[in-house]
Simulated scan of single mutants.
Amino acid sequence: MAWKPEMIAEVLHECGRLALDIQQSAKRRIKADNTIVTEADTRIEALIRQRLEEKDANNSPDSQGELFFIGEETSSEHGETYHRQALQGRCYVTDPVDGTVLYSNGLPGWGISLGYMEKGRLAEGAILYPFSGELLLSSGDTVLYGRSGKNRFPEFHQLRELKAPDPRASSPVLTVSQTIVKHGRYDGPLSVLSTGSCVSSMRNLALGGSVGYLTRTRLWDLAAGFPILHKLGLKAFTQDGHEFPLEISDEFWNIPPVERRHHWRMKQHVLFCSHEQVFRDVMAHSRIP
């Protein structure tokens, strides 16, 4: 396996320092889908790929075939053959800056997300939150967590095992995506929060800061957070009640070739939550577009 937790932490630290160093000066533009992209997004994605390819080459005895990359900023450059091959082999999936609007406006809540899948199944994940100095990192069946404070990153040896959140002690909060805020509705008893980034919403759920996260997003947004939540024993259900699997398939995902605006997008909204009763309660009070 190409996933070596200490090496992953090292790569994310370098990316986090770059993100902070250029945050005030990073140029930004509006993409065709009307979302913001900054110089940091493109430079960090390129740096992640460069470092992981270097380290994979240096560990060639452990390598098992080509190493693939699916990233938010470069996914559209690859054709159907590349994407299908990525689902058959070893593949890193990254969102170099999840929460670009937050990042580009100097606000907290953004993060650097790196997931890993083998043979089409999400297996490992790591998320660095440079603003708050937090790191979530999976290692086998374990999730590691550390916090060093604003603009400082925990070293690998400082990380400690994160235990599954106690549903009875979790905050009565439901985090939702921008789609729900703009076009949907929730009128149940839970407080509602839209954080502006998938990584922030998944962090809240992992640490007991919420009981659920309702979203319909893209592969790179949750490729790190989903394996982390799964290892903590949390569940995921599609809006029609099916369990949402770690396996990436046409049943649940818009896999290229499809219209570009749908590339790697979930086919349904999904609720990540502590148990099935939360799903039933949330769905009973939700109108999903």
Rank of each mutant, 00 (worst) to 15 (best):
K55C: 05
L52D: 00
R28L: 14
E80S: 15
I22T: 01
D21E: 13
L122R: 07
H78G: 13
E66C: 09
E53G: 03
G79Q: 07
L20Q: 12
G115Y: 06
S63R: 15
L122F: 12
P61Q: 08
F69S: 11
T94K: 03
V93I: 15
D98A: 12
R90K: 15
S63H: 14
R84D: 09
Q85T: 10
E80R: 12
S63L: 12
T42Y: 09
G109Y: 10
S76R: 06
Y92W: 05
S63I: 14
L122H: 09
R43C: 05
A126D: 14
E124Y: 03
G115F: 06
E53A: 13
G120W: 15
Y103S: 10
T74M: 09
N58S: 15
Y116T: 13
A26E: 06
R84T: 08
I48C: 07
G99L: 00
E80F: 15
A126H: 14
T38K: 00
A32W: 06
L67A: 08
G111F: 12
K119D: 12
T94R: 08
A86M: 00
L122S: 11
Q85H: 14
G115S: 08
R121F: 08
L47Q: 14
E39W: 06
E73A: 03
L52M: 03
R43A: 13
G71C: 02
I70H: 01
V93A: 07
T35Y: 00
Y92E: 07
Y116S: 04
A46D: 13
N34L: 02
K27C: 13
A57P: 01
E54L: 09
E53W: 04
N34D: 11
D33H: 07
I36T: 09
R29Q: 13
G99E: 01
I70C: 03
N34P: 05
A40D: 02
F68I: 10
A57M: 09
S113Y: 04
N59T: 15
E72H: 00
S76I: 05
I127L: 06
S75N: 03
V97M: 11
N105D: 09
E77A: 08
R28N: 11
